[in-house]
Structure formats: C-alpha cells, structure tokens
Design a protein around this nucleic acid. Structure first.
Lengths: 112, 112
DNA sequence: GCATCGTATGATAATATATTCATATGAATA
DNA sequence: TATTCATATGAATATATTATCATACGATGC
C-alpha cells in the first residue's frame, strides 16, 4: 500500500531534523532570532508583494529610514533579502522562498 | 491539466501569508523570538525524541536546572511544549508537530 | 563643483533578555 | 513530620538589542 502524501511529508520532516549538531542548533537559533523582531517581520512581509526601495519600505511599515536601514542590513547579512542599486535608490527583495514558508508555518501554529 | 503537488503547496503558502494584519505580524515575531535562543532550541530538540523530565533535559543539553526551568516556562507559555506531573518529577513534551516543521524549514534555509 | 535626494552607519541611550544564586514549593518516603 | 529529591521562582547582574540622532556616503542634476 503506497504512502499518503501526509505520511511522506512527515517522514521528510523527521529526516530533516534528525542528527542536528549543537552548532547547527546554534545557527538555527540565530536564524529564528532574525524573524523574532516585529520591525524585521514587517519588512519581510512588505517584500512579499515584490521588491521595494528603502523609502517605499519605510512608508509600508511606517518607520523612519535609519531604523529600517539598520534592520535591512541585519536581514541582508542573514541572507534573507538581497539588494541592488538602481540610480539613487537601493532596491530590496526576498532572497528565496524559505522566508515565505517559514512565516507561513509560524502563522499556522498561531492560528490554532 | 491538474496541478503538481509543488504548485498546490506554493498556493497554500501564498494563501497563508496573504492579508496578515499588523497584530498578527507582531504575534509572529513573538513566536519566532521563542525559537531564537539556543537554550530553548536545544530543549525543543531534546524533546524531539520523546518526553523528558526536567533533570533529563538538563543532562541532555548540559545546563543547570534553574536556567532550564526558566526557559521551560517560556516555552510552555508560548504553547510550544506541555507538561504533566509524574510523582516527584514533571515531564515535558512537544505541544504539536508545528514545532518540528518550523525547525525543519529553518534548517532547509541554512543548508543552502 | 555644489546642492539635493536616497541610503548607510556610528554612537548613544533605553529596553529587553538570559543566567546565576538563593530560596521556596511540592511530592514521596523513612 | 522531618528529610530528601525534583522543580519552580524571585532578585540581581550581565549582556544583547533596538530606535534615535547626527552625520557620512553615493548618485544625480544643475
């Protein structure tokens, strides 16, 4: 009898979390720490709908430019976002789809 | 032509992250903040293999009892773990599967 | 070159967080 | 009930983190 999709998924997850070293757990904590700030989460969420420059991000989340730039740097260092210069402005975008997935999982947990 | 599993999954995620209120983003940040500490991640990971009492957790992650108890309280308040008394000891276990999923997603991101 | 717009950054102050120490509570048992 | 084992908790210290302010940097246009 073939596995259900759910069973397959469960097994994948179990495989992903098996044999995690202490170092990796530390890295994981560092990663989640990045998500654990409402300013940064708002920035990430603002980028869900597509790339934005710094000024646009500031408007979207209603925070001043300096605070946003500081957090953008942290997000970029963590490789959650990427940037490119376009004339006078710098345009930011999500680095990959894991950001969306991680936030979606978090939301699932909250909604229970 | 029917959707692939991957397409379905992508659509589910997009749905989950659409229309998130500012309050919800704050709750999300609070949730991820819990994962963003290496002691707490270690505790959660220690519970992946099954329930443990406080003493066993202390041994598993090599931290003193007081520090562990403080973090256990935070994890329990966030509903990531649950507990029950068993004689002199208190046994802790993961509250649901989302914990595993969230950590698995984090690990996927790191491994790139 | 100079002014201006957009962004980045360093220093500071305010706040939050984790660990430790001491001690309290709670359950079992002699 | 006095003692011991297991866990919880309050206070204090140490550390980390964030927003703000001032200012610097980079690109564009005059």
């Amino acid at each position: 009898m073939p596995d259900t999709e759910e069973k397959k998924c469960r097994r994948d997850i179990d495989h992903l979390i098996a044999s995690v070293s202490e170092d990796e757990l530390g890295e994981l904590a560092e990663l989640f720490k990045i998500f654990g700030d409402s300013t940064r989460i708002k920035i990430l969420y603002a980028l869900f709908s597509g790339e934005k420059n710094v000024t646009e991000i500031c408007e979207a989340i209603d925070m001043n430019q300096s605070a946003v730039s500081h957090q953008l740097k942290i997000l970029k260092t963590s490789k959650l976002i990427q940037s490119r210069r376009e004339g006078k402005s710098v345009v930011y975008s999500l680095a990959d789809d894991h950001v969306k997935t991680i936030i979606a999982m978090g939301r699932e947990h909250i909604e229970e």
